[in-house]
Design a protein around this nucleic acid. Structure first.
Lengths: 190, 190
DNA sequence: GAGAACAAACCGTCTGGTCGGTACAGAGAG
DNA sequence: CTCTCTGTACCGACCAGACGGTTTGTTCTC
């Protein structure tokens, strides 16, 4: 694959991502993606032969970025649960601290792909299932899951801009979640 | 409005609800709703002159049912936060205990409407915003929001069937959330 | 019989995908 | 060096089906 081809593909993925995040899945049409990326529709379909292929590529890129960030957070000395919390915290609340171009909100944005059509969901369900099953093997599975759910719910609320908490409260929520995550990682059953 | 008309309308709303929950918003087409409800497309558009009108009716019915259940839970002696937790618990985990035909999962299913098009969201955002703003006026706003987010995240996970917890764990999670909700409602800052 | 309730054919638009063609950068032959 | 050939990258007109909505006609109820 040539360099030129790579650049165009990235432009297309970026364009599709922007559209989903700013205008919703409903506006994610091939024409719109091509137009936003500054490529013709034919050019788009040359690289991604179907809309499905495009969606698959987007989600794969997202998962890769997400995994890299998660592993780098663990490498920095965070326990598994705390790393998970910071995965959401890092770029969402402190974007300036993150060098990786990944926003946790994207994850939620792409969950909306699942919402649009259950068939899409089946394709990536397995990967997520195995991750979260492993994620429950902590000193306090109940609290671990509460933390996970809370973060997902929070991101969803942010994404849809529904009943959002003021920044100060948001900060306190994250702080308390991190505190509990630390306790779990260090083996305290609270 | 005649009795016959009422029945048809309910059938249409039920059909639309079923489609959203089982196949996703993408498959919510007028033809499909009419077919599922056993009514012709013309019949559908007689009662709901546009797709938007149908969606509005669905969401309004959902909100009404949700509010009734929430208030009845408070009338049963639950504090505001505990009532909120039981709102999710009641029909989802103990459907046999509920007389009201409302599933908390529906709430999440309809959040997916927001996902499809941000324009839909604006219409109902206000109601949800005022509810959740009031909801933060408790003895421990941070914990209150964590509970709320956790429940929403849990329902989302259930709806998309992604990384779901086994029933026993789910039961323990709810139990712990209820315990904390009680503490908040009784004024303990934990 | 009159109006409410419903049926079904039809229409315009939008959208995913096809297809024939173009631009251009090398490779190889003479 | 140049002429031809080939494969990659891209363009844009076009098509078929799906979908929301209209129109016209029919049946049921009071």
């Amino acid at each position: 694959m040539s360099n030129r081809s790579m650049i165009t593909k990235q432009k297309l993925l970026d364009a599709a991502t922007d559209i989903i995040m700013e205008h919703g899945v409903h506006h994610l049409t091939l024409d719109e993606v091509a137009k936003t990326a500054g490529v013709s529709k034919g050019g788009l379909l040359y690289h991604y032969p179907s809309k499905e292929a495009l969606l698959t590529a987007i989600v794969e890129r997202l998962q890769t970025e997400q995994n890299e960030l998660y592993e780098s957070l663990q490498a920095d000395g965070n326990g598994p649960v705390e790393a998970f919390v910071r995965l959401f915290d890092e770029t969402k609340l402190h974007p300036e601290r993150s060098s990786i171009q990944i926003d946790a909100e994207k994850m939620i944005a792409f969950l909306t792909l699942f919402a649009v059509d259950q068939e899409y969901a089946e394709r990536w369900k397995h990967d997520l299932d195995t991750f979260f099953t492993a994620f429950q093997q902590t000193s306090d599975p109940v609290e671990t899951m509460i933390i996970r759910y809370a973060l997902e719910g929070m991101m969803m609320s942010e994404h849809f801009n529904v009943g959002v908490a003021p920044p100060a409260l948001k900060h306190d929520i994250i702080a308390r979640l991190i505190e509990r995550a630390r306790n779990i990682d260090s083996g305290k059953t609270d």
